[in-house]
Amino acid sequence: MASRDDIKFLSNPTIGQQRKKYCRFKKFGIKYIDYKDSEFLLQFINEQGKLLPRRITGNSLKYQKLVAVAVKRSRHLAILPYVADLLK
């Protein structure tokens, strides 16, 4: 019988697999999102300054809401732009 090690795949079987998304706040225990930290918040917005959806960032619902609030606060204080082009 051929064991798992004997099977030769034509292509790398791990290529198509996506790495499982995770919520970075839960994983690293981040409890507070600072609205003054623009570098951190840049991770959650796209080039146009729009919030990235949860399906891309992998945030849990709780923290996505907190991220949204923090981004909106920093926009008010002109730390992040409301509209932008080529932000990154």
């Binding site: 409890k31 507070y32 600072d34 609205y35 930290d37 570098e39 008010h76 204080l77």
Partner: peptide, 25 residues
């Protein structure tokens, strides 16, 4: 902008003052 801090916010600010938080940088 005025914001009320929750307990995590208070801790965050404290840690930042004592220099505990600069992990991202």
């Amino acid at each position: 902008l005025t914001v009320r801090l929750d307990k995590y916010g208070i801790k965050y600010n404290e840690d930042r003052r004592t220099g505990k938080i600069s992990a991202y940088r």
